[in-house]
C-alpha cells in the first residue's frame, strides 16, 4: 500500500489480487473504515462501500493479474480510481446495461457476474468515467461529492 499526503488530501493505493476470492472485499473494508474515521456522511459511505466492492470484485473476477484501487480523499470529494491490465471491455455501452455480463458460468455459480456491477456503480457514484482497451486494460474513475 502506498500513502501520500497532500496539503488537504490523502491518497492510498491498494493492490487487489486476481482470482483471489477468499481475500476479495479486503480493500473495500479498508476504504469503509477510513471514510468512517474521516467522518464522511453515512449515506455517502454506503454508496462508496457498494461501488468499491463491486469494482474490487470486477478486478478479482475479470483481471487475472488483479489491479489497483486508489482512494483519494479531500474535504470536497472522494475519488476512487480502479486500474487493471485485464482483458478490457469491448463494448462499454453494453457493459453499462443492467444484466449484461461476460462472466463465465463458473463465476455465476459462485453468485457473481449478475451483470449489475457497472450499473450499480453508475447509480451510486456522482461521476463515473471508464476508459478501456481490449487486451490492454481498464481504468474506472468514480467521484463522490462530499457535501
Amino acid at each position: 500500500m502506498e500513502v501520500s499526503n497532500r496539503a488537504e488530501g490523502l491518497k492510498e493505493t491498494y493492490d487487489v489480487a486476481g482470482r483471489d476470492f477468499s481475500s476479495a472485499g479486503a480493500a473495500s473494508s479498508r476504504i469503509k473504515r477510513i471514510l468512517q474515521q474521516i467522518g464522511v456522511d453515512q449515506g455517502i459511505i454506503r454508496r462508496i462501500a457498494v461501488s468499491s466492492y463491486e469494482a474490487e470484485m470486477n478486478l478479482v473476477i475479470h483481471a487475472s493479474n488483479g489491479g489497483r484501487i486508489t482512494l483519494d480523499i479531500s474535504p470536497d470529494a472522494v475519488t476512487i480510481l480502479v486500474e487493471d491490465d485485464g482483458p478490457g471491455i469491448t463494448d462499454i455501452k453494453k457493459a453499462m446495461q443492467p444484466g449484461y455480463s461476460t462472466a463465465s458460468d463458473e463465476i455465476r455459480e459462485m453468485g457473481f457476474g449478475a451483470g449489475m456491477g457497472l450499473p450499480n456503480m453508475q447509480s451510486c457514484a456522482d461521476e463515473l468515467e471508464i476508459s478501456s482497451e481490449p487486451g490492454v486494460g481498464t481504468t474506472l474513475k468514480m467521484v463522490f461529492m462530499n457535501r
Partner: peptide
C-alpha cells in the same frame, strides 16, 4: 471512529 469533527483535520 471519527478522528476529528473538522474533516480537513481528520484527513
Amino acid at each position: 471512529l471519527k478522528l476529528d469533527d473538522d474533516m480537513a483535520l481528520a484527513i
